[in-house]
Design a protein around this nucleic acid. Structure first.
Length: 1023
RNA sequence: GGGCCCAUAGCUCAACGGGUUAGAGCGCCUGGCUUAUAACCGGGAGGUUCCGGGUUCGGGUCCCGGUGGGCCUACCA
């Protein structure tokens, strides 16, 4: 008669939750299901305590999603989901930035020369299609990440309602007296005849530019002034200020010479071969290099430093001096500028306000003329001075004119160095034509940073002042929140304040106009009679109304009523004859107005927003422009909290100066990836779409959640492999919990009530702590702390609590301790599903699907509320478990050498077997311990510890996973002894325990369980 | 060139206002189980906290200076 197989009487883990996630295949199915069920709407319609206004910064509708988007969008979705699950209402309206030059150029590239034949309206229609194409593509890609949002009703900056609100925001600036028209240098591509934005610049590393040192002669007044200081200055020895430039073509536009007020300057006395002398003014630290560059260091020409009362003097002392332009009949005064450096050039900077931003700023400060005699094609115009004109360079491209100008400088004897000298440096080129750019002053619309504001909130203060105050108000609020331990507010992380403050402090006036077609027009009307550009707020609001119904295309529609009835020129009163302004608004103005267009007017949202979350580059971009618009329209920042993410880089090994290798983050470059691809490397990890297709969006989400997103994040195959590993480990413990619960509706912890066993109560306490920890982490946007806390919790549960409870979960039959443990396991799996739902929406839904529904259970984990577990914390249980685990470690240490010696013996025997054919293992049977449950351990426990572990005394052997355990309560050096347990193990629970009945092979516990099982399961009549 | 930021185990991260022997998860090595099995359990190795100074009784933590890296910015005029 064969022994009875008791397997059927055990309560073994079972369930259909697969070990393999198969995410790539299954994620789309869940998405589909959620869509059909209207999950997000259901989430929004739940009763909630408060509304959390989370405003999407619009990505640019151009190209597929890259890792920056993945990082950013995933974080946004964590926020939407965790705030929702914490009981708030989060209506996330995804948006897109649809206007602007890159889209226009995509279209131009596709259409080629045909573009020119189209009317502005037709061109705009093409651009709209192009933008919409990318909106659709990105929308699908963002949704594939699992992102929640009102995808059927996004906001687009090209929607008429949005365009109208942008103009209303502009009207607010006009009302506050901040909008003006001015002349200002911009990056200009002569090849494309257009201004370029920062993002459209590329840099050529080895660009060759001419390098010229030029004399600016000083008159008698200069000589006289300097003689006060340097009495030996010879009468008739000309004095010149020496400048250096790489753009000789800007010399016709020279209007001043800039020196640093604190920099030291010297006069060089240079004796020429003919016996005459000249005096050259340069910065002291640069004198040597200027002498070298100009070839003055031959012995007979060696200049001497002029020594006066002091060896040198500071730039300040040059105040009021005026020098002569090298070829035109005009004067160049000395001005002061902080940007003048002592590391390159001569320390005296040729200043052409029409051809450089710094020069321009200096020009504004000193009231210099912004003069730029260059047209759209980059060619000199008739505005050139008479001398330059006489050189025949009118109509010549400025770069082509460079050699002519150098040659003339030499002819005139004002060139210090050799004609034809050049330098190699980094220089901006057009991203499209790759042609070098020039800076050129053009007439543009501006917003004044430093004009006192009229009306509204904070009248009399400037835009810059209020903006800086707002930046600090947020910072203070954030500090206060931190002090109070409240959820994170203000600048997150706090150093965001430094970044945006520095930028706001130093920024120039905001140039809001662009000479393009694809955007929101600046609705100015130019009077044909007097030339006045009319831009009143009434006019702007009139056009806004028109745009609201017809879209911004109306501006390009001859028949649209853009001129209000009864309109007359502000300046001359003319009632007809108006030309529409040809510029559009900077796209940053549009996106900066998004809170105004999307949130402020939506009853579900409001002003200010609770949160903006973008990459830290947006301190310059969206955070910045939104702040300015917020101050103009509402007198305050449009957000309460600004959270920032870093950048995604690539992990690479780099040799350090000391020869050691170090892993370092490098910015990802397309060309590097392309090189790898050509080198046969697998580059799919660099394409998020490919990662999603292979491993699922969940892996990307977990990757984001395990990193410190406030810093830059590294990308590598190894990084993803690790994420996949941690995913599996989380998934497997959840799987085991599900298998323990086995799809049965088990009692809740509350229902178990007083029958809750101490060990289960302890685990429940841990769970309560975990829930609290994760809530706090979510409120601080600290997602990685959630993942870390849950991982550690699950790993600990797997290694101790679950391992220990297996004994009774499998072997008891409907005992109180099974009820008790099942209740806690159920609570664990449910709580953790909810905790992780914001980060792993797919997996947690999978878990939820495998849990039986209780009454009131929602159909989706995403409709669950945050776990509300109550459990008074009993710290004596913590102490008891601590002692138990110490004993467990001691027992394990005692058993380990026996187990591993046995293992070594067995291995040796197996090898020997192959040689000698022996079957028997020689290790004495009495000493064999394969598994802790074979062991019989005797432990000394101090009286103190014995008392501490009293709550768990009843399950001590199980906690130590042992077959049998003898505890000797005695103080002194504790002894631990492990031997093999009883001769025969219980055939059912496999414990080598003393009370095994030799007939049945069952221990007492198991025979009771079997008897009860048999009673409830009448055997079938036969067999 | 300027502003802001980062650097702790192979990887991702901890270490409350300076205070025991710098921890965890994953990986790695190793042994076991075969009732979580492409799983699980035990044991173990692995750190000059980037470098150099300073303050301090005491520095991963604070200060200064480097090195490497990132973002933003800048017509090296």
């Amino acid at each position: 008669m064969s022994a009875r197989d008791f397997k059927a009487t055990l309560r073994l883990p079972e369930g259909a939750f697969s070990m393999k996630a198969d995410l790539a295949k299954r994620e789309p199915q869940w998405l589909d299901r959620w869509n059909k069920a209207g999950l997000y709407r259901a989430m929004l319609e739940r009763p909630s305590e408060k509304t959390f206004v989370f405003h999407d910064g619009p990505p640019y509708a151009n190209g597929n999603l890259h890792y920056g988007h993945v990082l950013n969008n995933t974080l946004k979705d964590f926020v939407t989901r965790c705030r929702t699950i914490l009981g708030e209402r989060v209506k996330f309206i995804p948006g897109w930035d649809c206007h602007g030059l890159p889209i226009e150029q995509n279209v131009e590239r596709a259409l080629g020369p045909k573009m020119r034949e189209l009317t502005p309206m037709q061109r705009r229609a093409k651009c709209r299609d192009e933008a919409q194409k990318w909106v659709d593509a990105q929308s699908a890609q963002r949704q594939r990440l699992g992102m929640l949002g009102t995808w059927d009703a996004p906001y687009l900056t090209m929607q008429p309602a949005f365009e109208a609100r942008v103009l209303e925001a502009l009207a607010a600036f006009v009302d506050r007296g901040l909008v003006y028209r001015g002349l200002k240098p911009v990056w200009w591509s002569s090849a494309e005849r257009t201004a370029l934005a920062e993002s459209e610049l590329e840099y050529e590393d080895d660009h060759k530019s001419p390098s010229v040192y030029v004399r600016f002669r000083g008159d008698h007044a200069v000589s006289d002034k300097l003689r006060e200081r340097f009495p030996t200055l010879r009468e008739g020895g000309p004095v010149s200020a020496v400048i250096w430039t790489t753009t000789p073509w800007t010399l016709p536009a020279n209007r001043a010479l800039a020196v640093h007020p604190e920099l030291e300057y010297v006069l060089l006395e240079r004796s020429k071969r003919d016996g005459s002398v000249e005096y050259l003014l340069v910065a002291e630290p640069l004198a040597k290099s200027v002498i070298a560059a100009c070839g003055w260091n031959t012995p007979e020409l060696l200049p001497r430093t002029m020594h006066g009362a002091g060896s040198a003097f500071v730039g300040k002392e040059l105040e009021g001096l005026v020098f002569s332009h090298p070829f035109e009949e005009r004067r160049s005064p000395i001005v002061f500028a902080d940007y003048v450096e002592s590391t390159a050039g001569t320390g005296i900077v040729h200043t052409a306000p029409g051809h450089g931003r710094e020069d321009y700023n200096t020009g504004v400060k000193y009231g210099l003329e912004v003069y730029s005699p260059v047209d759209d094609a980059g060619e000199f115009t008739e505005e050139l001075g008479p001398v330059a004109k006489s050189w025949g360079i009118v109509g010549k491209h400025v770069f082509a004119a460079n050699p002519v100008i150098s040659a003339k400088l030499e002819e005139l004897g004002v060139l210090c160095n050799a004609d034809g000298a050049f330098i190699v440096h980094r220089y901006p080129i057009s991203w499209r034509s790759k042609k070098p750019l020039l800076t050129r002053a053009t007439v543009q619309w501006f917003i004044a940073m430093d004009e006192p504001m009229k009306g509204g909130v904070n009248p009399g203060k400037t835009l810059r002042e209020v903006s800086l105050e707002e930046i600090d108000r947020l910072a203070k609020d954030g500090a206060l929140a931190q002090e109070q331990g409240a959820e994170a507010r203000g600048w997150v992380p706090a150093w965001g304040r430094e970044r945006i403050h520095g930028m706001m402090f130093a920024r120039p006036d905001w140039c809001i106009s662009r000479q393009r077609a694809w955007g929101v027009p600046i609705p100015a009307l130019h009077c044909e009679h007097c030339g006045h550009p009319n831009l009143s707020s009434a006019l702007v609001r009139h056009v806004a109304k028109l745009f609201a119904s017809q879209g911004a295309d109306a501006w390009y529609d001859e028949n649209a009523p853009v001129v209000p009835e009864g309109f007359c020129c502000e300046k001359c009163g003319a009632t007809h004859g108006f030309t529409r302004d040809a510029s559009i608004l900077d796209v940053w103005f549009e996106s900066g107005s998004s809170f105004y267009a999307v949130c402020a007017s939506d009853p579900d949202l409001g002003f200010p927003c609770d949160l903006y979350l973008e990459g830290s580059d947006q301190h310059r971009g969206w955070f910045h422009s939104s702040l300015l618009v917020g101050v103009a329209t509402h007198g305050q920042a449009p957000y309460k909290t600004v959270a920032t993410a870093g950048f995604v880089g690539e992990k690479v090994q780099v040799a350090q100066p000391d020869g050691k290798m170090k892993t370092v983050l490098k910015a990802m470059s397309k060309s590097d990836i392309e090189k790898k691809r050509q080198g046969g490397e697998d580059v799919s990890v660099y394409d998020p779409q490919k990662v999603i297709a292979a491993d699922g969006a969940e892996i990307l989400r977990l990757w984001v959640a395990s990193n410190d997103y406030t810093d830059d994040i590294g990308l590598s195959k190894a990084a993803f492999d690790q994420v996949k590993e941690s995913y599996r480990s989380i998934r497997n413990v959840l799987r085991f919990l599900l298998q323990v619960v086995r799809g049965e509706v088990v009692e809740t912890v509350a229902e178990v009530g007083a029958a809750l066993q101490p060990i289960d109560r302890w685990q429940q306490q841990k769970l309560v702590a975990l829930v609290a920890r994760c809530e706090s982490a979510y409120r601080h946007f600290d997602f990685r702390a959630v993942v870390a806390a849950v991982s550690e919790f699950l790993s600990d549960a797997s290694g101790f609590y679950l391992d220990v409870s297996k004994d009774w979960l499998y072997n008891d039959y409907k005992s109180d301790r099974v009820r008790s443990t099942l209740a806690v396991c159920d609570a664990m799996v449910r709580s953790i599903a909810v905790i992780l739902a914001p980060i792993l929406p797919f997996t947690t839904e999978d878990v939820w699907d495998h849990l039986p529904r209780r009454k009131d259970d929602p159909t989706s984990v995403h409709l669950c509320m945050w776990p509300k577990l109550s459990c008074e914390h009993d710290s004596t249980l913590d102490d008891a478990v601590r002692v138990v685990r110490e004993l467990r470690d001691r027992a394990n240490l005692a058993i380990e050498p026996v187990v591993s010696a046995w293992g070594a013996e067995k291995k040796a025997a197996q090898q020997e077997k192959r040689v000698a054919g022996e079957d028997e293992v020689r290790w004495p049977e009495s000493a064999r311990i394969d598994h802790p449950r074979d062991a019989d351990v005797e432990l000394d426990v101090s009286e103190g510890d014995a008392s501490i572990l009293r709550p768990l005394t009843g399950v001590l052997a199980e906690c130590l996973l042992l077959g049998a355990l003898t505890v000797n309560v005695r103080d002194g050096v504790p002894r631990t002894r492990a031997v093999r347990g009883a001769k025969s193990a219980c055939v059912r629970c496999r414990r080598r325990i003393r009370d095994v009945d030799s007939a049945s092979g069952l221990c007492v516990r198991c025979s009771t369980a079997v008897a009860r099982w048999d009673a409830e399961h009448p055997a079938p009549s036969a067999g």
